[in-house]
Structure formats: C-alpha cells, structure tokens
C-alpha cells in the first residue's frame, strides 16, 4: 500500500465520493421553490387561523421542536448523554486541575474579555431562538467554545476560580437534563390527575387535548410554550458535556 498505489487509491476515493455528491446534488429542487415540507410548515405550525395545530414560534426549526419533533431531540440528547458517561468512565480518577502559566499576558487578557462576549452570545442565541436562528445545541456548542478558550489560553487550574470544576459541571449537566425530563412528563401527570387527554411532550393545546403551556409572554409577545426552558436545559447539557470531555481528554494519562 505504499508509493503510487496508495496515491492511486486516494485519487479514486476522492473522485468516486465527489461524483456521488454531485449526483446527489442534481436531484435538489431549485432555489426559491417552496417544497412540500415548507407548505406543511406554513399551513400547520405557524398559522394564526389554525391554532389547533400551531406551536406559537415564528422560527421554523424551533417551531417544529416540541409538538412535531420532540422525540428526535429527546433521543439525540440521550445519545449525547451516553457518550459523555462513557468518556467520563474511562478517564475518571486522573482528574486534577493544576494551575500553571498559560499563554502570554496579551492572550490571557483577551481571552478573559472574549469569554464574557461568547457566553453572552450563547445565552442570546438560545433564548431568542423562537424568533431568530439558533437553538439549544447551537448555544451549547458556543458555551463550550467559551470554556475551551479559557482552558487553552489560561489553564485548567483557572476553572476552579470561576466556580467550575468537574463535579459542578456534572451537576449542572444533570440539572439541565432533569429540567427537560420534568417538563416532558408534566402533561402526563396532568392527564392522570384530571382525566382529560394530554400527551407526553405536548406543547400547545389542541381541540381535543386542552392542556398546554402558556402561549403568550405578557400580552402580545409569543412565548412558544415552554420551548425556551427546554432550550436552556439542552444548552447547559451540551455545553457542560463538551467542557467535561475536553477536560478529561487533556488529562495526562500517566505521571511523568
């Protein structure tokens, strides 16, 4: 597999993969064409005259979140949780946060300032995700980037000064998961208690299932039900999960 044979194999691999991708791209509809999925969205999820089916959120992706795509997000969260538990089981016991120098003073000062900006933008992207692009996973990735910047530019030992260590990160992650789980089973408990129909992961009231989270925040501002709390829980889960993974992967495997 050395010499020209390896190169030929690489060329063949790249050529075949790119031809497959070009072939897949040929089947796409034209830009600007309203696809059937878009029509379904316009008729059902954000239609003020058809409030039996809507989810009270102008953003398409998060509007589909609970009433239409809830189980998808639930199982994504579960897969992510299992992955982090596996990494933590392999690397636990070597976790020591020692404080060392870090990079130069210019980079350290810049990283501290940018940390605040990145964390603020993570919260903004998550909370305003019912109107502007964003969501829980996006906000969580950005939050993880803020902490990774601190770890790289300063050091791992700087995290306890910011009231974050491995145990607290695990606790915050579990609080986020518990928020999601609790909001998921509230409609079921309501249904068992009152005798009316309600589904797990139900967000807005339907004609035959009157339970629903509040539609409006104040008088006119759409709240999207409880999409904002579930996005906040997802954000804390994903951000703390990536931070824990990065911390555990940067641990030394043996003392030397």
């Amino acid at each position: 597999m050395s010499g020209w044979r390896g190169s030929l194999l690489g060329v063949l691999f790249v050529a075949s993969m790119s031809s497959i991708l070009v072939y897949a791209f040929l089947g796409y509809p034209e830009l600007g064409f309203v696809r059937p999925l878009g029509e379904f969205y316009l008729f059902n999820t954000y239609n003020f005259e058809n409030q039996d089916w809507w989810s009270a959120s102008p953003n398409a992706v998060t509007g589909l979140l609970w009433d239409y795509r809830g189980y998808d997000t639930l199982y994504e969260t579960m897969v992510f949780y299992v992955g982090i538990v596996a990494v933590a089981m392999f690397f636990e016991g070597h976790a020591k946060l020692t404080k060392t120098g870090g990079m130069t003073v210019i980079v350290r000062a810049t990283a501290r300032m940018v940390f605040v900006f990145i964390l603020t933008s993570a919260f903004a992207i998550t909370i305003f995700s019912i109107k502007t692009p964003g969501g829980g996973f996006q906000g969580g990735s950005i939050m993880a980037i803020a902490y990774i910047a601190i770890i790289v530019a300063l050091s791992k030992g700087f995290l306890p000064e910011m009231n974050i260590d491995l145990e607290k990160a695990h606790i915050a992650k579990i609080i986020g998961l518990a928020l999601i789980a609790g909001l998921t089973i509230v409609p079921v408990v309501y249904s068992l208690a009152s005798g009316s129909v309600a589904y797990a992961l139900q967000n807005q009231p339907k004609a035959w299932a009157p339970f629903g989270y509040p539609t409006y925040l104040g008088l006119t501002s759409l709240s999207g039900g409880l999409i904002i709390p579930i996005q906040l829980g997802e954000m804390v889960h994903v951000g703390m999960g990536f931070t824990i993974m990065f911390l555990l992967l940067t641990m030394k495997e043996r003392e030397d």
Binding site: I125, G134, I145, I148
Partner: peptide
Amino acid sequence: DIALVQVAAGVGISTAF
C-alpha cells in the same frame, strides 16, 4: 441555524479535540 452549529462544532470544538 446549520451554519451556526457547523462553525461552532467544526472550527471551535473538533479542531481542539
């Protein structure tokens, strides 16, 4: 939405790992 998560995960996180 997808562009946000692509840049966050593709440039910020996977490069670090």
